[in-house]
Nucleic acid binder design. Structure first.
Length: 466
RNA sequence: GGCCCGUUCGUCUAUCGGUUAGGACAUCUGGUUUUCAACCAGGCAAGAGGGGUUCGACUCCCCUACGGGCUGCCA
C-alpha cells in the first residue's frame, strides 16, 4: 500500500490571495483530491513585521470562494516557532549546523566590499569549524553546515533533474540570533511534521529546494516529491503586477466570474489534458497530473477567461447559479434579491444564462425580471415606441388578455398582429421588447412574456403604449 | 556578476525522432436570426537565431539572443 498523498498550500499573508498563488493552491488541491489524498493549508506568518491578520483572512476568503477546501485547521507557521528552534538545536547537536557569531553588520560590510570589488562570492562564516572553546559570550545565529563540494540534485516532477553546485550555496541561517527560525528551516520542519509528500509550488523556489533538501538530509528525513511550476505573467509577458489589472482573486469574484470558470481557466494555465478546454472540477481532479504541467510561464488572457466563464454560467444548475449570483451581489455590496425577484429569476434564468459571460452581464440581461412596471425605456428603445408602434401594441393588448399563456398561443397572436399591420415580425418584436424590458437587447420576447407572466406583461405594454 | 529555469499561431496549449505541426480563445469572411448572445461554414496564423547528432529533428546536444527566478539574520 502506498503512502497517502499529502499536499499543501503555504502562502505568506502579505496581501490578498494572488492569482498565481490561487493557481498553485488549485494544482495542489487537484492533485490531492484526485488521488484520495489530503490538501493542507499553512499560513507562513513568521515575518511578524509584515504579518497582518487581515491578509491571512483574505487568503482564507479567497480559497473559500474558489471552492478549494483544505483538510483540518489552517496551520500557523509562527505558532510552530519553538519546534523549529528545537530542530535547529538538534542540528547543532548532530553537527549538521553550527553557531555563527558574525554580526549582520559584518556580513553586510563583507558583501558591499566584495561587490565594490566586482565579486559576488558567497559569505563563508569564520565560525564554521571554530573550536567551541573560542566561542564568545555573545548572541549567535545557527547556520547549517552545508556541503561545500559536490552538487545537490533536485528530482523535480516538472523541471526534471536540476543540478546545483554546492559551492554556489552559502551556509544559510536556520535560526536567527534572536532565536526565531528562518523560512528555509520553517518550511522544511512544517512540511515534514505535516506529513507533506508532494511540494507543488512556484518555480521561484526551485533554487531554494536545494538548500531545503540539505535540511532534510541533515535531519535524516524523507525528501518530498518536488514539483516547481512556472509563474504566471501579465498579458505583456512581464511578471504579473498591479498594473496588469486584477492580481487578487477577490477582484475576479467582484468582476463576476463564477468560481467553476475560474478553476477551469486557472487549471488550463500551464497545464493541459490533450485538447480538453472546458471541463468540470471533477474531471480536472481525475485528469490532473504533474506530468501535464508545462515548463514555460503562462500569460493571462482575459478574453479566454470570459469565454470559459460564460460556458460555466451556461452549464450551471439554475439553483446553484442563483445562489452564486446572490453571493456575487453580496460581495459587491449590492442589495439582496427580494423574494419576488428570486422567484422570477429561478424561473427565468434559463433564457439569460447562456448569453452571459459574467454575473454582471447575467444581471444586465435579467433586468426584465428584476424590474416592475412601469418599465423605464432607455434612450434607444424609447425611440422604438413611436405613435405607430404604440398603436400596434394597443391593438395587441386585448388579444393578450384572452390568450392562453403558452409559447405556441403567443406565437399565433403575435404573427397574426404583425400580418394585420403589414409588418415583419422583427418590426413588432422591437417595440414589444422596449415595452417589456426598456432595452433593445433582451432575451426572446416570448421568453420574457412567459417568465414575467400575463398580468405583468399587459401592465408593461399598457404603460408603454399610453 | 554567478547559478538555475524557460522560448510551438496574437494568447493558452497538443506533439513525447517520421504529422499537410492539431485544438481552444481572439480575429477576419460568409450563413442563420426576433435584438444580443449563441450557432453553422470557412479563412488568417507558429517551432527565437545559429551550429551539430541522425536516413530523418519542434522533439536530442552545444552556442547565441531574449525573458524569468534565485543570489537576505524576507517569505
Amino acid at each position: 500500500m502506498t503512502r497517502q498523498i499529502v499536499t499543501r498550500f503555504a502562502p505568506s499573508p502579505t496581501g490578498d490571495l494572488h492569482i498565481g498563488g490561487a493557481r498553485t493552491a488549485l494544482f495542489n488541491w487537484l492533485y490531492a483530491r484526485g488521488r484520495g489524498g489530503k490538501f493542507l493549508l499553512r499560513i507562513e506568518d513568521t515575518d511578524r513585521e509584515r504579518y497582518t491578520p487581515a491578509a491571512a483572512e483574505a487568503i482564507v476568503t479567497g480559497l473559500r470562494w474558489l471552492g478549494l477546501d483544505w483538510d483540518g485547521a489552517a496551520v500557523s507557521q509562527f505558532e510552530q516557532r519553538h519546534r523549529h528552534a528545537a530542530v535547529a538545536h538538534e542540528m547543532l547537536a548532530r553537527g549538521t549546523a553550527y553557531k555563527c557569531f558574525s554580526t549582520a553588520e559584518e556580513i553586510a560590510a563583507f558583501r558591499t566590499a566584495e561587490e565594490a570589488a566586482g565579486r559576488y562570492p558567497v559569505f563563508q562564516s569564520p565560525w564554521r569549524d571554530a573550536d567551541p572553546a573560542t566561542h564568545p559570550d555573545a548572541p549567535f545565529a545557527i547556520r547549517m553546515k552545508a556541503p561545500r563540494d559536490g552538487e545537490t540534485v533536485i528530482m523535480d516532477q516538472v523541471q526534471g533533474q536540476v543540478v546545483i553546485k554546492n559551492a554556489t550555496l552559502d551556509d544559510m541561517i536556520v535560526l536567527r540570533s534572536d532565536g526565531t527560525p528562518t523560512y528555509m528551516l520553517a518550511v522544511v520542519v512544517d512540511d515534514h511534521d505535516m506529513g507533506v509528500t508532494h511540494v507543488i509550488r512556484g518555480d521561484d523556489h526551485l533554487n531554494n529546494a536545494a538548500r531545503q533538501q540539505m535540511v532534510y538530509n541533515a535531519m535524516d528525513w524523507d525528501v518530498p516529491v518536488w514539483a516547481h511550476i512556472p509563474l504566471i505573467h501579465g498579458p505583456d509577458g512581464k511578471k504579473l503586477s498591479k498594473r496588469h489589472g486584477a492580481t487578487a482573486v477577490g477582484e475576479y469574484q467582484l468582476q463576476g466570474y463564477p468560481a467553476a470558470g475560474m478553476r477551469n481557466y486557472l487549471a488550463r494555465l500551464g497545464w493541459a489534458h490533450g485538447d480538453d478546454e472546458f471541463f468540470t472540477s471533477d474531471q480536472a481532479k481525475a485528469w490532473f497530473d504533474l506530468s501535464g504541467i508545462g515548463r514555460a510561464p503562462a500569460r493571462l488572457d482575459f478574453k479566454k477567461l470570459e469565454n470559459i466563464s460564460g460556458q460555466h454560467i451556461a452549464a450551471a444548475e439554475n439553483a446553484a447559479l442563483l445562489h452564486e449570483l446572490e453571493g456575487f451581489l453580496a460581495a459587491n455590496g449590492q442589495p439582496a434579491l427580494t423574494d419576488t425577484q428570486r422567484d422570477l429569476m429561478s424561473r427565468g434564468l434559463y433564457c439569460v444564462k447562456d448569453r452571459a459571460k459574467t454575473f454582471f452581464e447575467l444581471l444586465d440581461k435579467a433586468q426584465f425580471m428584476l424590474a416592475r412596471h412601469p418599465i423605464l425605456a432607455d434612450e434607444a428603445s424609447a425611440k422604438l415606441l413611436d405613435s405607430v408602434s404604440r398603436g400596434i401594441l394597443k391593438d395587441l393588448t386585448p388579444r393578450l388578455q384572452t390568450a392562453q399563456w403558452t409559447k405556441e398561443a403567443l406565437e399565433v397572436i403575435l404573427n397574426d398582429v404583425a400580418v394585420r399591420h403589414g409588418i415583419g415580425f422583427g418590426k413588432l418584436a422591437a417595440p414589444l421588447r422596449a415595452a417589456l424590458a426598456g432595452r433593445t437587447v433582451t432575451p426572446s420576447v416570448y421568453d420574457m412574456m412567459l417568465v414575467i407572466g400575463q398580468d405583468e406583461t399587459i401592465l408593461r405594454i399598457g404603460a408603454a403604449a399610453a
